[in-house]
Computed example of a mutant assay.
Amino acid sequence: MEFRRVGASGLAVSEVAYGNWLNHRSDCVQAALDAGITTFHTAAAWPGAEESLATALDGVRRDDLVLCTGVFWAEGTGPNDSGLSRKHLVKSVHGSLRRLGTDYIDVYQLLRFDYQTPLEETFLALSDLVRQGKILYVGTSEWSAEQLLRAAPIAERYDVPFVVNEPHYSMLWRVAESQVMPVCERLGIGQFASVPLAQGVLTGKYRGGRIPAGSRAAGTEEQQVAVRGLLIPEVLDRIELLRGVADDAGLSLAQLGIAWTLQHSGVASAVVGASTPAQVTENAKAAGVRLDLDVLTRIDHLLGVVVQTDPRLTWSPPAGLA
Rank of each mutant, 00 (worst) to 15 (best):
G214T: 04
T203A: 09
V195K: 06
L230I: 03
G229R: 15
G257H: 02
A193P: 04
V235P: 12
R243K: 15
G250E: 08
V164N: 11
L172H: 12
A274V: 05
L262Q: 01
G214V: 07
V271P: 01
I211C: 08
K205I: 02
L251W: 02
V272T: 00
G209C: 11
D248W: 07
C184K: 05
R186H: 13
C184T: 00
A259Q: 11
G188N: 12
V245Y: 11
I232Q: 14
A218Q: 07
V183W: 08
V272S: 01
Y169M: 07
P167F: 02
H168V: 08
V183D: 11
H168M: 12
S215K: 06
I258W: 05
Q255A: 02
E221T: 04
V227L: 09
E240M: 07
E222G: 05
C184R: 00
V235D: 12
R207W: 08
G204A: 00
S252A: 06
S170F: 10
G244M: 09
G209A: 02
Q223A: 06
A226K: 14
S275F: 06
R216Q: 03
V245N: 09
H264M: 08
S215G: 04
T261L: 08
A274C: 10
M171L: 08
V271W: 02
G188H: 11
Q199E: 15
Q199M: 15
P161W: 13
E222V: 15
Y206N: 11
V201M: 13
L253Q: 14
A249H: 06
R243V: 10
V183G: 09
G200W: 04
V180R: 04
T203W: 03
R228K: 15
I232A: 14
S252W: 01
G250V: 06
G200K: 02
A193C: 12
R238K: 14
P212V: 12
M171R: 00
I189M: 11
V272M: 00
G200P: 00
G204N: 05
F192V: 01
F162R: 14
V225L: 14
P212F: 06
Q199R: 15
L230F: 15
Q179W: 09
I232S: 14
A218C: 07
I211M: 09
P161M: 12
E177K: 00
R243F: 09
F162S: 05
I189V: 00
G229F: 13
D247E: 15
S269E: 02
D237C: 06
I211R: 13
V245F: 11
K205N: 01
S269T: 11
W173M: 12
G266E: 10
P196N: 01
S275A: 12
E222M: 15
A259W: 08
C184I: 01
A270W: 02
V245H: 10
A270T: 05
Q255N: 02
R207I: 08
L230Q: 06
F162H: 12
S215F: 09
P212R: 12
L256E: 12
V235T: 11
A274E: 11
E240I: 07
V267E: 00
T220C: 00
A249R: 13
G209P: 07
V227Y: 03
Q263W: 12
M181P: 07
N165R: 04
I189D: 10
V183P: 10
V164K: 10
N165K: 10
P161Y: 14
S252G: 11
Q191I: 15
G266W: 08
N165S: 15
R174L: 05
Q191F: 12
E221C: 08
